[in-house]
Design a protein around this nucleic acid. Structure first.
Lengths: 245, 245
DNA sequence: CAGTGGTCTAGACCACTGA
DNA sequence: CAGTGGTCTAGACCACTGC
């Protein structure tokens, strides 16, 4: 197994990160075959001129991603199956863009309102607090995909309609210095009523996927509550789970 | 912040794990308030008689769980929001049991069959390979919740119907020595046809959640492919996501 | 038995934050 | 500036695996 592994000590990139990236790309390119053993940590450290803890840190990050499996007494193996990304906190805009679907957005509404009981509870603010409401229609290839209603604390961002039409909400939040940390989601289904059907170019009674999501920043503050409708004929949630050890 | 932290060096439980458990329970009991600083790692190590890397390992595991946030130059803080469990690879049986719903199962069918193209592709076996097909109806409080069709390689387990009625499939797999590792899922929606409606005690045209899942063990072998239908009026998927740093 | 990963130590220097 | 987490080293011993 003659992988060309090497680290650059002059680089500001941490050594363990350089190594984990090289291993990850070797796995992705198939240079490290599924099921193959990685070779023991001590040798690897010696060959690279690194200490064992540093090598372990690199390997551990790939184990956490699900690309490698360690077995005591055996060694470290490349997982057989192609693990794709675990479910990420991504916006529909990013998802569509990544799929090459050239998303478009129509901003239907953008107002500052007083929080209803539902929104206040989700954002953990007093009822009646001013919140920004953004209502959008997401299109792909000119076809409606989803209707999205988002509520945000009014002091976070004040996006222009043009910004909302050319980028995702999460990108705007990150640009405003918000560090997204976690989200709580509920995915369900229901059938379209007449108004929803017309908005999404479906028939009344068509199946819709519903998703409610509250997103928190790293201080634990709720920064967004979304309540969305997706056309089930055009969209499904697709994701990977890792079993926590 | 006078937490009674201590480690038992005689215990076979790793020191970092003892510490992370004590910190986690302190956070859950509210003894470590959200937003409070944890105190620096060097002091903590000194007070416990541990080395700094060991303390860091304990803290890191809680950061990975989303309970703590580190900020360079600032310190380590308890996250404000109550983070619940991230989405787990759990069976509906376990989910219902955890919710106190006393699940029940009707085994509708249990056969060894030849894999269809769909199943063969999902399990990565040749078409026509013998696979175990299990078809079940999951009930809670006597009401149908979901219709579940699972396909498994025929050589893994041969469960008795009684076992299938009193436990989840994943528990049976774990009991057979299978280490579950990851799963790929797709969640969608559609409306019930006449047969599905009757089976699930819904009306024709009622909304259903669909879920297809392929589960892999730690060698990357596909050990289960499931194709399930949930009554949207009774069930939704509820989960937490962490943003990968 | 030899070889593997799992855990742990006691230091070191750096980068970033806030006062 | 002092204090924090981020990274890194060079060892050590243990637990588990397979031969």
């Amino acid at each position: 197994m003659d992988l060309q592994l090497s680290v650059d000590r002059g680089s500001p990139v941490p050594l363990y990160f350089q190594l984990s990236q090289q291993l990850e790309s070797a796995i992705e390119r198939g240079r490290l075959a599924p099921g193959s053993l990685l070779g023991n940590e001590i040798d690897l450290a010696g060959r690279l001129g690194l200490s064992r803890p540093t090598v372990r840190q690199a390997i551990q990050s790939l184990v956490d991603k699900g690309l490698l499996v360690r077995r005591r007494g055996i060694g470290t193996q490349v997982v057989h199956s192609q693990v794709k990304r675990p479910m990420e906190l991504s916006s529909l805009y990013d998802d569509l863009e990544a799929a090459g679907q050239r998303p478009a957005t129509q901003v239907l509404r953008q107002d500052v309102e007083e929080a209803t009981a539902e929104v206040a509870a989700a954002l953990a603010v007093p009822e009646g607090t001013e919140v920004l409401l953004v209502e959008r229609l997401r299109l792909a290839h000119g076809e409606p995909m989803a209707h999205m209603r988002n509520h945000l604390p009014a002091d976070l961002i004040s996006p222009k309609a043009a910004e909302l039409e050319t980028t995702g909400l999460y990108r705007l939040l990150r640009g405003a210095g918000v560090t997204l940390h976690s989200a709580r989601q509920t995915v369900g289904a229901r059938v379209a009523d007449a108004a929803e059907a017309q908005l999404l170019a479906e028939d009344e009674g068509a199946p819709l996927l519903t998703m409610q999501r509250t997103t928190y920043d790293d201080t634990g503050r709720a920064v967004e509550y979304g309540s969305h409708l997706y056309r089930a004929s055009r969209y499904s949630f697709d994701f990977q789970l890792l079993v926590r050890p």
